[in-house]
Structures are given as C-alpha cells and as structure tokens.
Amino acid sequence: MKLILTGILAGLLAATAAKADEMAFTSWGGTTQEAQTKSWAAPFEASSGIKVLQDGPTDYGKLKAMVDAGNVTWDVVDVEMDFAIKAAKDGLLEPIDYAIVPKADLDPRFSNEHAVGSFYYSFVLAWNKGAVSGDTASWADMFDTKKFPGKRTFYKWSAPGVIEIALLADGVPADKLYPLDLDRAFKKLDTIKSDIVWWSGGAESQQLIASGEAAFGQLWNGRVFALQQDGTDVGVSWKQNLTAADVLVVPKGAKNKDSAMKFLAAATSPAGQAKFAEASGYAPINTKAKAEMTADAVKALPDAHVDGQINLDMNYWAEHRDEIATRWYAWQTK
C-alpha cells in the first residue's frame, strides 16, 4: 500500500514537473526520427530555447488513450495521413494554427485543418535485377506470373496503395480509381495471392528485395533509393507512382500547444524540409525546399516523376477506412 501511495505521489510530482520551455516530439524511431531530430529539433532548440524531448515510437492506441484520459504528454506526433484525417474526425486532434505556421509554400496535397505535412513519398515498383529476367515496367507486370515468375511483395496492412495497384493493373484508368471497386481489386489480387510475401515495415521490404526473396514489389521510393545508394542491384519503375504522406499533428489537449505550433513552423520551413529530405530520401512538403537541396538529392525525389503520378486519395481512405479494413483482413486470412 505504501508503495502504491509513493507511486502515486511520484507520478503527481512528475506530472507537475513538466516545464514550460519543453515539449515532446514523437515519431517512429530509427533513422527517420534521427533525421527529424537533427534537421528540425536541433535548429529549433537553438533558435527558440525550447527543449524538444524525443519520444516514440508513434502508437495510435497510446495517442487515443492520452486524449481520452485528458492527460496528453505528446505535443507533436508524426502519423500517417489517412490516420490523421480519421483522428481529426474522432476529435483527437487540435486544429493547426496557421497564424503561426506559414501556409503559403506548403504543398496543399499534404496539409489540412488538423495536420501539416511531415514528408511525402511514392510507392514505386522495384525489382531485384538478379532475380528477374528482363525489366518490369508497370504494375500489371506484377500480376503476370507467367512472364515474371517469383514472389512479389506488397504492404501488409490495410492502407492506401495495394488496392489501387490491383485496379490499375486490371486496367482501371487513373482518374477513375475512386470510389474503389473492392470486388474487382480483390478478384485481381486473388490471381497472385499464393505468390505474395507481405512486408510490414520499410526495412523488411528492403531486405526482401535485396536478398531476392521477393523478385519485385511495391516499395516506398526512399527505401529503393537507400538500396541503390548501398550498391544493391535493383531496378525501379516510376510509372504510375502513388504518392502518400506522413503528417505532423498536435493531439487534442497537448500541454505545450504554443511551442508545438512554433515547432511545426520550423519543421515545415524550407530549410528544415530540405535538410530532412537530404538525410532521409523522403520528399519535402514545402515547395521552396528543393531550392536549398543539392541537385543529386532532388533527382531522387518523387517530384522528378510527376508524369503519370497518382495521388492516393486520403480523404476517400479516411472515409472508408474501417470498411476497407474489414474486407482486407477477411481476404488476407482466407
């Protein structure tokens, strides 16, 4: 009992000890968060005097629990964009204060009332040159097991991407993708189901392609870039590359809301975005950032491949997230 009382006391002390000149930034860990720390948090700390505590990994359940309990210890969180739209609808997010965060140069595709872009990326078709004879060129090739035998790898979770790829491969024109024809997509996916290896995290997708375990797959462009940088013999096709984004949000009731908004301004600034893009291979969401990057780094960005580029419809996904997920897992586990 004494232990419990001491515990509660200590907890209360810890809760009141949070200082005004501190804030917590949460992301997914690993090198991405390291790059965010170096490119955003460090310069921000130097210029504002506000200390940025690094927390993580991002966990949506944890975020919801904080907001529900009214005890929010995260001030800025890096989340996937379709989640952000759903979370905003569920009342979990603070609106972004665009009086503090300059909006003019932000890519309008990746910012809205409750979220500003963190970085964006494209799903591209990548293949291990040793495991595939000839070059694959389009999503349709991933469904042609005769011409291109071998395992193919796709993103495991119910998220924007795979459904669209199946539809494109089945001949749906890019501008007629939405609303998604799920029956048609799953029917198309059925044709290669036994040849699919799923990847659940970015690193896994790289390992699968690099080792040749999967001959080709749907990868994030930053991951393919890193493979090529490392000298792995991979090919990449940007045809019909599909853009998606991570965004930065402020959970409802965040304790250091003002600092959080100032941090967002720094993170989305041209300099912050340029630095992060160079460190991570992901694309900046500030249209002025490219001017501050080296020519080589710019060449690797999805911006160099806007021809035939398709923007995954995050609003559609946020709207139909649960419905698609139900179908998705029913199909996967069958």
């Binding site: 919801k64 799923w198 659940s200 997230r321 997920a325 996967q332 586990t333």
Partner: peptide, 23 residues
C-alpha cells in the same frame, strides 16, 4: 506475424490492428 503467412494470422495481431490502427 513475421514468420507466418497472413492465413496464419493470430488473434493478438488482429486485436492489435483493431485497437491500434482502427481505434
């Protein structure tokens, strides 16, 4: 999750998806 296929999905993974991703 890492060594099985999706047809071997376990309940804990399903629950984790339901509460953490779908909220």
């Amino acid at each position: 999750a890492l060594l099985g296929g999706t047809s071997n999905m376990m309940l804990a993974e399903m629950i984790a998806q339901t509460v953490q991703s779908l909220l």
